Simulated scan of single mutants.
Amino acid sequence: MTSALLIDDHAMFREGLALALRQAAGPSLHLRTAAGGAEALALLKDATADIALMDYYLPDLGGAALVRQLRRAGAGLRIMVLSASEDQEDAEAALAAGAHGFLHKSADVGQLLDAMRRVLAGELVRPPDSPLPASLAVLSEQPPGRLTPRQTEVLCLLCEGLRNGEIAERLATTEKTVKAHISAIFAALGVVNRTQAVLAARRAGLFGKPR
Rank of each mutant, 00 (worst) to 15 (best):
M1L: 12
T2S: 08
S3E: 14
A4S: 08
I7M: 00
D9V: 07
A11V: 08
F13L: 12
L17H: 02
A18P: 03
A18W: 02
A18G: 04
A20K: 09
R22I: 02
G26V: 14
L31M: 01
L31T: 05
T33N: 00
G36A: 13
G36F: 03
G37A: 03
G37H: 03
A38V: 15
A38M: 10
A40P: 01
A42Y: 09
L43W: 10
L44W: 08
K45M: 11
A47W: 13
T48Y: 11
T48L: 10
A49M: 11
I51L: 15
L53E: 01
Y57I: 09
D60H: 04
A64T: 06
A64L: 06
A64P: 03
A64N: 06
L66P: 03
R72F: 07
A73C: 07
I79V: 15
V81F: 05
V81E: 01
L82W: 04
D87Y: 13
A94M: 02
L95P: 06
A97M: 07
A99E: 05
H100F: 03
S106I: 14
D108T: 13
Q111C: 10
L113G: 03
R117K: 15
V119M: 05
V119I: 15
V125S: 01
P128S: 13
S130R: 15
P131R: 09
P133M: 13
A134P: 07
L136F: 08
V138G: 07
V138P: 00
V138L: 14
E141N: 08
Q142H: 13
P143S: 08
P144R: 04
P144Q: 05
R146E: 00
P149R: 07
E153H: 12
V154W: 06
V154K: 03
L155H: 05
C159F: 01
L171Y: 02
A172G: 12
A172Q: 07
T173R: 14
T174K: 04
K176I: 15
K179G: 13
A184R: 11
A188T: 09
V191S: 04
V198C: 03
L199F: 08
L199R: 11
A200I: 05
R203H: 13
A204V: 00
G205C: 06
K209T: 14
K209W: 07
R211D: 10
